[in-house]
Design a protein around this nucleic acid. Structure first.
Lengths: 196, 196
DNA sequence: TTATTTTAGTACCGATTGGTACAGAAAGGA
DNA sequence: TCCTTTCTGTACCAATCGGTACTAAAATAA
């Protein structure tokens, strides 16, 4: 079925897609020019257009891949860290990233939402859909943690999830605007208290 | 002193700077091309370069103007609404903007922080400085409101201010990613409770 | 071998980017 | 009037943007 006639493709589509996703994640849509994307992906222009059609289509695939990889990764962490542990891990790993690299990439979906919602509104629907995937995941994690008693706060998972998402994305913004460690730690502590 | 020889300038520098600032606020730095800026400002290219030197210099002036106008405006609101009232007003006006226009511009400094901190790091220092102006303002508002008893929460203004800023900017991000009204209202309610 | 497909590489395309240069008209003070 | 400055307007610049077209080599199945 897959073995078609002719020279076989020498690159793995998923692998180069992931490279593109990582580049978009770090630099955003508009600042990822085709030439730098091709460098990051390690393929040539003709191969790119044959496989991915356009930059816009590539970005859509990357948004989907981000959600897929991200949610699957978090799901695997539940066994190791527990539901509440995963929610806190997201916060801690953001702070860890800041400590090691001096910055924080944040969430590709939130970043893209900010970047595109006026200048590329045709992405809005997809971005929002992918966002709801994480939203549902967080709610599930909160529900489970509440059942287990790991989270005593009995606020509904919908409300708690929204506050959690606002806080964690606000935290990333504070990092990007250069807030000091003490101020960031205050936000981290508030998230911890929220999930107490 | 100001009346120099020759034809006088036919536009008010502050006025056209404000027009530029509003355009940057709505569209960001990179997506504000010189040609659209000139349209928004209502001046010609030669006048622009003579007065503002470069797009980068213009942006710096706009960041400073945003802080100046914003903090002065908030200061005038204190008499009318009180310190706590001003903090809540910022939240409510964001939701009001969403209701009327279907979107939220957010804060120019936070937006610029996200946009520029990797691709235009030479703005980072200025952005952070302007950010601290608002930070200090919010702390002062919180301190006063706590003294008056309008805010019972006795958490330090530094901590409370950081959480407040994270939440309000997270709220804007949630809007930009297309979150639903109920989820946004949950965040608004959380901010109200925080300042209770 | 032959047919088929992907590869790398190059040359374009029109549009746009920030920025410079220069023209000539207009408006004021000395 | 004369000098100075700003005005509008046009023409340019090199660089980059996303995208298309094409060649020729390479790799595979039939």
């Amino acid at each position: 079925m897959k073995n078609s006639i002719g020279r076989p493709r020498s690159f793995n589509e998923q692998e180069v897609l992931q490279k593109a996703m990582e580049y978009f994640w770090e630099h955003g849509y508009d600042r990822s020019s085709l030439s730098v994307l091709l460098n990051a992906m390690g393929i040539k222009k003709s191969s790119f257009y044959q496989t991915f059609q356009s930059k816009e289509h590539l970005f859509r695939l990357c948004l989907e891949l981000y959600t897929k990889m991200g949610s699957e990764y978090l799901a695997t962490l539940v066994d190791e860290k527990g539901e509440k542990g995963v929610l806190l891990y997201i916060v801690y790993s953001t702070m860890e990233e800041l400590r090691h690299t001096g910055r924080a990439k944040g969430c590709l979906l939130m970043n893209s939402g900010s970047e595109c919602y006026i200048s590329h509104p045709h992405f809005n629907e997809l971005i929002h859909y992918e966002f709801t995937v994480f939203q549902k995941l967080f709610r599930k994690l909160i529900d489970e943690a509440q059942k287990k008693g790991d989270i005593k706060n009995q606020t509904s998972s919908r409300v708690l999830g929204s506050i959690y998402q606002s806080l964690i994305n606000g935290l990333v913004q504070m990092i990007q605007v250069g807030a000091q460690t003490e101020e960031l730690e205050a936000v981290v502590k508030h998230i911890e208290d929220l999930l107490e």
